[in-house]
Design a binder for these strands. Structure first.
Lengths: 142, 142
DNA sequence: CGTGTTATGTTATCTCATAACGTGCGATTT
DNA sequence: AAATCGCACGTTATGAGATAACATAACACG
């Protein structure tokens, strides 16, 4: 529905989104601020306000366990309040996944307790396939 | 039984656990500190160090989305790295639940991505049964 | 124009968390 | 017992994350 291409981002919002989109991993608000100082950003509220808007638009996710933010990589992220993340503690890679059985499980649990679910935070920590596999000699990503 | 049951908590650890155990909801580290000033605690590290130990012992959980801590209410919380929480945004009540189908789902997802799961953070936000139900006129819990 | 609304810039402050350093004390070793 | 070790403890200071509060600019629109 509101999947209109680019829904009128302001300058700051574009800058912040650009930083996250460029990055290959999560960024903290202060890291974003540092990256955008040359573009005119000077203070935390400018970043946090943009982030808030971008999150409401469904373009950015906040990773609660990292105090950091990532651009949403989902094709058409319909279920924004129920995103699931896998966070590799070895290479810091973050994968956003959609898994409907898991989402169903979450809803079932909530329903079972008569709990009206508004947002599910699911962040899995561990080691990603690339970092587990001893396959090729050089496996360090970054 | 000697001093059997409790696995050798130090004074500070006991104080911090006591505060969490007494509380009917999550407490932040600084709230705990304030509550324990009369008992001799003066600075954040004293609380954080105790919390770290208690978490390692499996007696306390950290709620990532609240930056707060709760005493583990589980009978025999074997699966401490996979606890699931339902957090009511209306009354601030937090329920820790064990749901093995959900845990299975999480493990299945991780396995599907060859992801070696070490810890799952699952925190459901919404409205609890008591706060949804319009049943009786005064339903405020606190 | 005047007015309401929304984004912005800026300062200061608040909350959460840890680094770093030194002390006290019980257990172990010699 | 003296020397030593490890661990919890106490304390100060600071780092990191987030927001309150206030003033200004930009824009849409009746």
């Amino acid at each position: 529905m509101t999947t209109g291409s680019t829904p009128s981002l302001t300058k700051n919002q574009s800058l912040v989104y650009g930083a996250l989109d460029r990055a290959d991993g999560p960024l903290t608000a202060y890291t974003i601020l540092d990256q955008l100082r040359d573009e005119g950003l000077r203070a935390p509220p400018q970043v946090y306000r943009s982030l808030e808007r971008l999150i409401n638009l469904g373009m950015v996710h906040r990773l609660e366990t990292l105090n950091a933010f990532v651009a949403c990589r989902h094709p058409s992220c319909e279920d924004h309040a129920h995103a699931v993340f896998m966070i590799c503690e070895a290479c810091d890679h973050v994968a956003e996944i959609g898994d409907s059985p898991l989402t169903k499980s979450l809803n079932r649990v909530a329903r079972g307790y008569d709990f009206q679910l508004s947002k599910a935070v699911v962040e899995l920590h561990g080691t990603c396939a690339a970092c587990v596999a001893p396959s090729d000699g050089s496996k360090d990503k970054k």
